[in-house]
Amino acid sequence: MNDLKTQIYPRSGDKETIYLKPIISNPNISIGDFSMYNDFINDPRLFEKNNVLYQYPINHDKLIIGKFCSIACGAKFIFNSANHTMSSLSTYPFPIFYEEWELDRKDVSNAWDNKGDIVIGSDVWIGYEAVILSGVTIGDGAIIGARAVVTKDVPPYTIIGGIPAKPLKKRFQEAVISSLLKIEWWNWPKEKITQNISAIQSGNIKELERLSSFNNFDSDSI
């Protein structure tokens, strides 16, 4: 069995697709098991440098990504330090240039508005060159369209797209979404997922409910 702590490449001969968890060194970035990133332009192992932007240590803001997420080439996570404060009468970042303006170095973060962490649920698909801004939470099972700019929270199992990104539709009926959020199949042991991939891929919600020892779904189809 492969060691998820050290295995970088999920597929033999494919150096463009990686599991993210083993290559992360920044303590303010947390990646769940099996979440992967594909990059056909740059080395995907440079994810922290090329895709996680303006995450300066002084801000202590975090990127949290759940399990089984799929992140396409060029997706960007833009953190608080990219902002210029809107509460000032000027957007010029004077506190950053504290030496020039004889300001206190400890007040550097006053140059921008702090909107919080970026939190991505599990089983989220983030499309090509999508941009996720600071303070955004994306729910489990959501899909972010290619080149979308996400400025607001995204509910679970919602497809969004555009600039700024807006909801396009729900992936499933509400009853199915409710069941999936209770089942949380991504938290099952690997052996259990392996044995039931066909049920997951075929949309067999009743089988997943049976495996999770509850049944609250009464429709015949997704």
Score class of each variant (00 low, 15 high):
S134L: 06
S134Y: 02
V136H: 10
I138H: 04
G139H: 03
G141V: 09
G141F: 02
I143S: 09
I144K: 04
G145W: 04
R147T: 08
R147D: 00
R147Y: 08
A148G: 09
V150T: 11
V150N: 06
V150H: 05
D153K: 10
D153P: 07
V154F: 10
V154W: 00
P156E: 14
I159W: 09
G161T: 11
G161Q: 13
G161R: 15
P164M: 13
P164D: 00
P167W: 04
P167N: 11
L168Y: 12
K169H: 15
K170S: 10
K170Q: 10
K170I: 03
K170M: 07
F172H: 13
Q173N: 15
E174P: 05
E174L: 06
E174Y: 01
E174D: 14
E174M: 05
V176L: 06
V176N: 03
V176Y: 07
I177N: 00
S179D: 10
L180M: 15
L181Q: 11
L181M: 13
L181S: 11
K182E: 15
I183T: 03
I183Q: 00
I183D: 05
E184H: 12
E184K: 15
W185I: 01
W186R: 02
W186G: 10
W188K: 04
P189V: 12
K192S: 03
K192R: 15
I193G: 09
T194A: 14
T194P: 00
